[in-house]
Design a protein around this nucleic acid. Structure first.
Length: 425
RNA sequence: GUGGGCGUAGCUCAGCUGGUAGAGCACUGGAUUGUGGUUCCGGUGGUCGCGGGUUCAAACCCCGUCGCUCACCCCA
């Protein structure tokens, strides 16, 4: 590489999706869109950045995301804007702003796109990453909680992702959670000196999070900590049971995990996470839960809601080694024009074949026949159409079947018919 | 922000106790005046991440720096 200008690298933690991967992305996005449509979800497209306030108000001031992970900048008018670190906040803002609660009823929305968090990158974690998410507004019927989880698992099943399980918990509601929180607080406070530094600071800020600390000593201590089960009110308990029942009936691999907490402040009741082995330390492919007071916080009418988001990069890494060849679309026909005149003539032929829906490519530039055939071979086209002096005189081309090596001379008008007769492999 | 590992050809990597660079793949030409995939022969391609130090001599040792990567925190 003779570097005249120094190479410019991409920003840390962001990735290019190269052609070798992009078909998998399309498969994931299209499949999600199809499955969600089966459940009558409608797509919503929201901006990539918002007023910073949108995220501060929804995600919570003391969460890591808001405290240190947001890409925030000041625009020309002096207003603080932020590249969205997640989708739900924007969806809620859009739901309220556009009055989607009218007419009243259930609103089912999905979205996909990039999210931004200024974290240190590692396996399965990027600064720009992509999520597919879905949100349902307007009902707290546990049936919708179950439906949303079933829909998510349908997507994974359709994509044939192996070895997933759903971790499920209910975080309680504003009625019962405070009591649990207090109990946990005093429990932790009494043992503060034995906890790791992180958990010590969690006691005041967000004691719930000490429950899924990975430090061995904390794990041991927390083993005997009070759990939400003991504090859930009757209505939360019933709700939780009714979320679980349909999942069990449909044999969705659900594990109740009383220690499953959510990092973001807005969750209540149902919380779930879909985890996989083989993702490294970041083993969660999707996460979601219920947020019954967020719409109100955004100035809308009291509207219960539930949603989830899945990480596209993580999902795709679970797809690796699966059917990569099958996904790729190779040309049906590759044209090798041997002269200038042939090159000109091939425009017309290629154009007609494409209009019939065939994928067509050709050589560019001058090269030996041998090297042009090599290019044809590498394109993995089913057929090569050779057009040289002899053919031009007769108005024909030589059509070569690249797997059998058979070739026939054909008039340009008949090529499409010949391709049609051959079933696609 | 903290810690570990790693930066050698386009890619994957080798390079012993320091002696001024190698393989495979890829690319390209030929064997085969208009025919690819196999084989054989040849060729292009490297300021060994960058800067400094030690030394007669550094890809190799030392210091710094940048980048990548994994992990912690946390999350998708």
């Amino acid at each position: 590489m003779k570097a005249k200008g120094a190479m410019i690298q991409s920003v840390r933690g962001v990735k290019d999706v190269l052609p070798s991967e992009s078909l998998k992305w399309r498969l994931v996005e299209e499949t999600a869109s199809e499955i969600f449509t089966l459940y009558n979800f409608k797509e919503i497209r929201i901006p990539t950045f918002e007023k910073t306030e949108v995220f501060k108000r929804s995600i919570g001031e003391t969460t890591d995301i808001v405290e240190k992970e947001m890409y925030t900048f000041t625009d020309r008018g002096g207003e603080s804007l932020t590249l969205r670190p997640e989708g739900t906040a924007s969806i809620v803002r859009a739901y309220v702003e556009n009055g989607l609660y009218n007419p009243p009823g259930v609103t089912k929305l999905f979205y996909m796109g990039p999210m931004f968090r200024a974290e240190r990158p590692q396996a399965g974690r990027f600064r720009q990453f992509h999520q597919i998410g879905a949100e349902v507004f307007g009902t707290d019927d546990p049936a919708i909680d179950a439906e949303v989880i079933i829909m998510l698992m349908d997507l994974f099943t359709e994509l044939r992702v192996p070895g997933l399980k759903v971790l499920l918990n209910s975080l309680g509601c504003p009625e019962c959670r405070p009591a649990f929180r207090d109990a946990l607080y005093t429990f932790l406070k009494e043992r503060a000196s034995d906890l790791c530094k992180n958990c010590q600071s969690r006691i005041e800020r967000n004691p719930l999070r000490a429950l899924d600390c990975k430090s061995p000593t904390c794990k041991e201590i927390v083993e005997n900590a009070p759990t939400i089960d003991e504090y859930r009110c009757d209505s939360c308990e019933t709700h939780f049971n009714n979320v679980r029942k349909p999942l069990i009936d449909l044999e969705i691999p659900v594990t109740v995990d009383p220690k499953l907490m959510r990092g973001l402040d807005y969750y209540s009741r149902t919380a779930f996470e879909v985890v996989s082995e083989g993702l490294g330390a970041q083993n969660s492919v999707a996460g979601g839960g219920r947020y019954d007071s967020l719409v109100e916080q955004f100035g809308g009418p009291k509207t219960p809601a539930i949603g989830f988001a899945l990480g596209i990069e993580r999902l795709i890494s679970l797809l690796n080694g699966q059917d990569e060849e099958e996904l790729t679309e190779y040309p049906d026909i590759f044209i090798v024009p041997m002269t200038e005149t042939a090159s000109l003539r091939s425009f017309e032929i290629a154009h007609r074949l494409r209009s019939y829906g065939y994928q067509v490519d050709r050589t560019f530039g001058t090269a030996s026949m041998k090297s042009m055939m090599k290019k044809a071979d590498r394109s993995k086209a089913r057929y090569t159409l050779i057009i040289g002096e002899d053919e031009l005189k007769k108005g024909t081309g030589t059509l070569r079947n690249m797997s059998s090596g058979e070739q026939i001379e054909t008039s340009f008008d008949d090529i499409a018919d010949i391709l049609d007769e051959e079933p696609h492999p």
